[in-house]
Design a protein around this nucleic acid. Structure first.
Length: 161
DNA sequence: GCCAACGTTGGC
DNA sequence: GCCAACGTTGGC
């Protein structure tokens, strides 16, 4: 399937102690700032309004997909790179040549139950997602349409029980 | 807390 | 430009 017209699909990771799906629900939308990895940044820049985003909770027990978000605004220069003293300050970034970009994500839904990584790994449609690969540490990853559907299927299954 | 995997840094 | 050392991520 060519998806040049259709929206794309993504997965973003967040440690729930830092920023959880409940935080996003409360805030309604948030700027996805603080990503300081070039490959992840390139994906953030590719995001377009309307793209669907899987919200993944990492470094928690169990880790897994907690819900859905949607891209509300395309990536703009991450303001925190310009703030001396900020955790995400980057002295090599300038306002005329920013290095880091952040889209705005809007809350869409929280799954009734978190979809644990173990389920994602054992389900054929989602088994090959980047998040299942050991050593995959990227906090932003593209997701195939079939993988996205697979996650929704798993979310539907968990609701029935 | 352990450790595997990966990215970044810096000496040369 | 190589590569070892180091730091970070993230599942378990």
């Amino acid at each position: 399937m060519k998806d040049s017209a259709a929206g794309k699909f993504w997965l973003v990771k967040s440690e729930p102690d830092c920023y959880s799906i409940d935080d996003l629900k409360k805030d309604h939308s948030t700027i996805w700032d603080g990503v300081r990895n070039y490959q992840a940044r390139n994906y953030l820049v590719e995001m377009q309004p309307g793209d669907k985003v899987l919200f993944y909770h990492s470094s928690t027990q169990p880790a897994g997909v907690a819900g859905l978000a949607v891209v509300a605004k395309p990536a703009a220069p991450d303001p925190r790179q310009f703030l001396p003293g900020d955790e995400y300050y980057d002295p090599k970034a300038t306002r005329s040549k920013p290095r880091w970009f952040a889209p705005t994500l809007r809350f869409e839904k929280k799954f009734d139950a978190l979809i644990p990584l173990s389920s994602i790994k054992s389900f054929a449609a989602t088994r090959k997602m980047a998040v299942t690969q050991t050593g995959s540490r990227l906090s932003v990853n593209p997701v195939q349409p079939a993988e996205f559907s697979g996650i929704l299927l798993l979310a539907g299954k968990s609701r029935q029980k």
